[in-house]
Amino acid sequence: MTARDPQRVTRLLEGLAAGERGAISEALNLVDDRRSEEREAALRLLDGLAQRAGSGASPHVHHRVGITGAPGAGKSSLLNALVENLHSEAAGIGIIAVDPSSQRSGGALLGDRMRLSGGARESGVFLRSMAARDRLGGLADATHASATVLSSVFHWVFIETVGVGQSECEVADLVDTLVFVAQPGAGDTLQFMKAGILELPDIFVVNKSDTGPVAERTRGELRSTLGLTGPGDGENWQAPVLLASAQDRHGIGDLIERIAAHRDHGLAGGQLAERRARGQVAFAIESLARRYGDFGLARLGGAQAIARRLEAPREGSIFGAVLEIGQQIEAEIRGA
């Protein structure tokens, strides 16, 4: 089987550079693979991708966008409308849909939640759905690595997650721009506040504006609530509250503009780079913890110490660093 293919990483790097869909898919399978040999190969692959991006060999600058919100708020429908709209730009779009529905059996029903329209499917968008598996937060553990793979090929990478508090924090670290989709209806605002997640989203969009004045009212409520908590980013990015209807394709252009504007803002002010670095460290710690557990991390002084080490300037990519730290932990454990 391919697992024993020594050239695999090189081959995938080439395939990804050429934008081959088969290679993208295989790379996504690899970064999802728990076996130790595969995990190492995955880190080498990600390291290779990071180096290529760093060397400027990567042909484009990507933009990762998280779409979150309560179940049924219309995240997929909006995403579908975004894809149809962006398709004309032909920039390439990858989507990761994280499904929260994994249950006792460990099984999950995926795909159903996206229901991409004919137009969106024809656009050649790449869609991978993942189960949240044993994570409660809602993010599949391989999401970060998968997003890295997709953003080596596509300009736009969207990640849909169902939002319930905790997961917003995780996805916020993982993306450049976090869009929160709200349902029209009074109860919602209260829920945002309760969950204490109002600071995280960069853009709010009240969907289903076609349903009438309720949407407008929800937008007003959200706006005044946000006014109390202050701007989201600290550096003068005021999270806008938009109105849209995925059904009537209303407000989609505006949403795209704001998403792009948010990234430009982050690029100019340096927040984007900071955020990506933060996301990488979070990924690294999570990846090491999953593999080696608290006990393993403690061999090198614990999670915080490792995070500090990863935050310090370094040569090479974070993925290389994870590989290296992993080897050190293993050596410590063997020595002990």
């Binding site: 996504l28 399978n29 995926l110 869609l127 991978r128």
Partner: peptide, 21 residues
């Protein structure tokens, strides 16, 4: 399980099988 409902083309099904791994 990936199940996208009825009425897909063979092309869409193969693309989905590949993308979804």
């Amino acid at each position: 399980v990936v199940y996208d409902g009825i009425r897909l083309t063979p092309e869409e099904i193969v693309q989905s099988a590949r993308d979804e791994g």
